[in-house]
Nucleic acid binder design. Structure first.
Length: 513
RNA sequence: GCUCUUAUAGCUCAGUCGGUAGAGCGUUACCUUGGUAAGGUAGAGGUCACGGGUUCGAUUCCCGUUAAGAGCUCCA
């Protein structure tokens, strides 16, 4: 017998080898119908897996996000099965659940059309009606490779699994897919689904790889839930800033002016004016000093900052390097300009911290597919600050910045709608990041300490840092559920060095801020 | 940059199976009203994004350009 501790603390005993789903049925039939998977101690398991030891037994239902993800993952297999039936020459790649449904990436010659969506949905309906049992099996590496030998994508996935990894497959009818699971135990549970869109996506997320065809879809255990979802989505789209902005005459665009260059109409300009005054006044109250710096500079400045070497393609360059002595570039950021103000006079340790702020208009030559509404542009204006601090002031100043951010978000009423992301470097990506492991570690530890002290509820993200330092990113979801960074605070341990910034310490020695 | 989609009145959209166009909102004038984003009447407003091709004829079909949308990649 195995002793299982349930969520409410009670214990039930079951025979060794009892299936998870049968354990749940003992608790309640209704609960069993609504079960997506089981958490046994820390392990997420299929409902069909057998109980073999004592432990904590938690039922994860379709009503909770983790359960819905299992549901969507199973849905993605049904989508893949339907596509395989209709397009036998397709190669399957991956098909995970997302926060907002699921997708599956296919390597297929033709592109999916709207008519294909209908056909695929019809085929999915059939698969659901067939009530196919979903079964799990494992294979040793050699056999697993044999199983997927005609699919180079799956071969690649298996070859990248660690040596001791369990290689598992799920089977429903004649359809088999390499998959870590977990899954529901039958296709019959997927009552309502809809293919939302077809887009391109690079294999493994790298533009160097082949572009695959991705189908985005959504599914629910009940038909009315799908209807609700669609209605909600339509309502959300009506609140798209891009649509409202034009309807309310806040901004417009003109073909002749160009991509990523919106025109703020009187209503929009007034909003920006009020925000700008408000922000600058509040910053002044908090000890910031305002600067006004040029919109462009000679390339010499960007060579010093490293942007000429790293981000030349992203800048608008004025003049031809080959023909002219002086070449300028529109500024893509304000840091080096404000640093020049810092360097204009000798600073004492008593002068720090110095808090520079500027309502900065910046120019970035974004790729043509990137521009959108007012959120990603070639010319944009943001409220920007650079704090030059001593090491012993870092924590307090960081807190001050976070406090300012809280104040601003509260004023705008968005403080409950954001999430926090602690963006760290990727030590394996030497091209993107400055190769200074010790400096990274120290800066990231410093930032983590501060974030923890502030009790900020953040997620950590590897490979999202700036090239010169870690960031606290404040993320906001748009009406499509896509996250944008609306505010970012960064600890920069490199540019002070590059710009040879220093202050005279109390002992008369030069120190780096 | 890549995949897919779109471009008709100021905005949101219909429409023309190829014979040069319509609605709602907005707007203008007048009337009315303590109907306050929602009254009535009349009107203005469109080379159907731009360039080329096919055709007797293109806003409609095809190609290209530009712009807009979703996704991917990128985001100093």
């Amino acid at each position: 017998m195995c002793k299982l501790e349930l969520k409410d603390g009670s214990i039930i005993e079951v025979e060794k080898g009892t299936k998870n789903i049968d354990v749940v049925k003992k608790i309640s039939e209704g609960l069993a119908r609504n079960t997506a998977c089981i958490q046994f101690n820390d392990e997420i398991q299929d409902v069909q897996k057998e109980v073999n030891a004592d432990g904590k037994f938690t039922v994860i239902t379709l009503d909770e996000p983790a359960g819905l993800k299992v549901f969507w993952h199973t849905s993605s297999h049904i989508l893949a099965q339907a596509v395989t039936r209709l397009f036998p020459d397709v190669l399957l790649t991956i098909g995970p659940a997302t926060d907002n449904g699921f997708y599956y990436d296919f390597d297929i010659k033709q592109n999916f059309t709207e008519e294909d969506f209908i056909k695929i949905e019809e085929e999915m309906k059939k698969i659901v009606k067939e009530e196919l049992a979903i079964t799990y099996f494992e294979l040793p590496r050699e056999e697993a490779l044999k199983q997927v030998k005609d699919n180079p994508y799956k071969v690649e996935l298996i070859n990248e699994l660690p040596k001791d990894a369990v290689i598992s497959f799920y089977k429903q009818g004649d359809f088999v897919d390499l998959c870590a699971g977990p899954h529901l135990n039958n296709t019959k549970h997927i009552k309502a689904f809809k293919i939302m869109s077809s887009t391109g996506a690079y294999w493994r997320g790298s533009e160097k790889n082949k572009m695959l065809n991705r189908l985005y879809a959504i599914s629910f255990p009940k038909a009315n839930m799908l209807e609700e979802y669609i209605t909600k989505r339509e309502e959300a789209l009506k609140r798209d800033h891009n649509r409202l902005g034009r309807e309310l005459e806040i901004f417009t665009t003109a073909e002749q002016i160009g991509q990523g260059l919106p025109l703020l109409m009187p209503n929009g300009a007034r909003i920006v004016q009020l925000l700008e005054r408000f922000v600058e006044d509040e910053e002044q109250r908090r000890g910031y000093v305002l600067t006004k710096t040029p919109f462009m500079a000679k390339k010499d400045l960007y060579e010093l900052s490293g942007h000429w070497q790293h981000y030349k393609d992203g800048m608008f360059i004025l003049g031809d390097e080959q023909k002219e002595d002086e070449v300028f570039a529109l500024r893509p950021m304000t840091c080096p300009f404000q640093f020049m103000i810092y360097k204009a006079s000798q600073k004492s340790y008593k002068d720090l911290p110095i808090r520079y702020n500027e309502t900065s208009t910046l120019f970035r030559n974004e790729s043509s597919g990137e521009m959108h509404g007012l959120t990603r542009l070639r010319q944009f204006t943001l409220s920007e600050g650079h704090l030059v601090v001593r090491k012993d002031q870092l924590e307090e100043e960081f807190r001050g910045v976070v406090d300012l951010i809280y104040f601003m978000m509260k004023t705008l009423g968005i403080e409950k709608d954001v999430t926090y992301r602690f963006s760290k470097w990727d030590p394996n990506n030497k091209e993107k990041y400055l190769d200074m492991p010790e400096a990274w570690e120290s800066a990231e530890n410093e930032m983590r300490k501060i974030l923890d002290a502030l009790k900020i509820n953040y997620i950590e993200a590897v490979g999202e840092a700036a090239f010169y330092g870690p960031k606290l990113d404040i993320q906001f979801k748009n009406v499509h559920g896509k996250e944008d960074t609306i505010i970012t605070v960064q600890i920069d341990f490199a540019l002070a060095e590059k710009f040879d910034m220093y202050y005279m310490d109390s002992d008369g020695s030069k120190k780096r801020p």
